[in-house]
Design a protein around this nucleic acid. Structure first.
Lengths: 253, 253
DNA sequence: GAGTGGTCTAGACCACGGT
DNA sequence: CCGTGGTCTAGACCACTCG
């Protein structure tokens, strides 16, 4: 008697733990506050550290927590909305562009890039590295591939690389008339170089936004941008940078 | 001599494993093929099962693998592109809509939904459940919130719920003139109900697309759609459903 | 019932950030 | 140096699918 058939479908411990922690975060913690360390928390809940970590990992994936080795686990601020699909399409580097050019190199296109550009594998492309910062934090790293035929009059400047060269490539790109662009978003994990730029560990979850820019009937540029999935919410809209208030119906269960 | 300072920055085992497996998938396996089980694979690579699983988890996150309890691990097909931001904005349920209405209910708006709708918490809303299928597989589950004031002339039909009611709500919605819409995409984990509909375990990674539909100067509808992050690539574009060939510069390192 | 992936444990050591 | 999170091990049991 009294054994009311609870747990007839017992949910995993880490799942329940996640729920409990999530509620505690809402009610008992403030943004930026540091949590007890993993060993203490595990002991407090009577589970192994690995189990606790499984719960923390999910909460970090959902943008509720931020963990840094050697430092601790802190309560994350709400995700920042970053505008990705602007109403009026524009070339990278156009007025008002939020990206910052970092570097530039000229080389033959890797096979995958050549395929996306629909050119031959021998085509020379400028590879422009750019980074995007929001609220003082790096949120995205981008590789922008510009085939040589899109910027035919570039030779004026002879610096082979560096930010100045990158800006020159972008400036030349403006001379073409942009006819359209197609983007896609998918989940990925950060490569080592992107992870470094995003201040995360390799393998961290990222939202990969790939864009093809169309001009003169072909693909004039191609970009792969990786956004921190833990801190970013990508916004697409025809009403500009509208503030969307909160995650309604928070995806945590 | 000969100790050429390799591994001065030793990368984690699971990371190396992931790379090795990823290359093996490209060269030695075909889509749909089943891999050896986790215990065998772990033994073959001389690591603990947990370490192997860490590598498999990442590959699954990247959409390279599909694992199902009681069945095995199979090589996943390339992600399907699903169009999310169409060039001409349209109401949910308009002609050509790819969603299928499942159910409908009328109740007071939960606090989070009321906030997103910018209404009072007491506002009555129709909650329409819809699902989206692509290539025979469920790819997304949606909750669409339609406040009662957006569909004032609905009372003709008296069925309180069910697919027919859902379609009636959508039909009434078409009478308003759509003035704009704003969407955002972020990473989340599937709630239990969504997971079931998506044929995944609770907590599976999903891309959460929230959209606010604007009409008559206010928010006329609000939708939260969760897409399977492992199998979907969300496409936004002004050139229709353009086929983007492959992941170039695959995010695996 | 046999075999699969999913959960969980109780340890150990490592890499990193601050002191 | 210490404390943090990150990696790794060698087991165990459970939930599910299928023949």
């Amino acid at each position: 008697m009294g054994t009311t058939q609870l747990e007839s479908v017992p949910e995993p411990k880490y799942w329940h733990l996640k729920t409990v922690l999530s509620e505690a975060l809402d009610s008992e913690f403030t943004v930026g506050e540091i949590l007890p360390n993993e060993r203490d928390l595990a002991a407090r809940f009577g589970v192994a550290r690995a189990t606790l970590r499984q719960a923390l990992e999910q909460l970090e994936l959902e943008g509720r927590l931020q963990r840094r080795r050697g430092v601790g686990t802190t309560v994350a601020p709400p995700r920042v909305g970053v505008a990705v699909g602007t109403e009026q399409h524009a070339w990278p580097g156009a007025a008002g562009d939020v990206w910052q050019a970092v570097d530039c190199a000229l080389a033959a296109a890797p096979a995958a890039v050549a395929a996306a550009l629909e050119t031959g594998p021998e085509e020379a492309v400028h590879t422009v590295r750019r980074s995007r910062v929001s609220h003082g934090q790096p949120v995205a790293a981008e590789l922008l591939y510009v085939p040589a035929f899109s910027v035919p009059d570039l030779s004026a400047i002879d610096a082979p690389s560096g930010p100045a060269r990158a800006r020159a490539v972008l400036r030349e790109l403006q001379r073409l008339e942009l006819e359209g662009q197609e983007s896609s978003v998918e989940l990925g994990s950060a490569r080592a170089d992107d992870a470094k730029e995003l201040d995360r560990l390799p393998g961290a979850p990222v939202l990969v936004v790939t864009t093809r820019y169309l001009a003169a009937g072909r693909i004039a540029a191609y970009s792969v941008a990786t956004y921190r999935a833990d801190t970013c919410r990508l916004t697409f809209g025809d009403s500009g940078n509208v503030e969307i208030h909160q995650d309604p119906e928070r995806q945590a269960s």
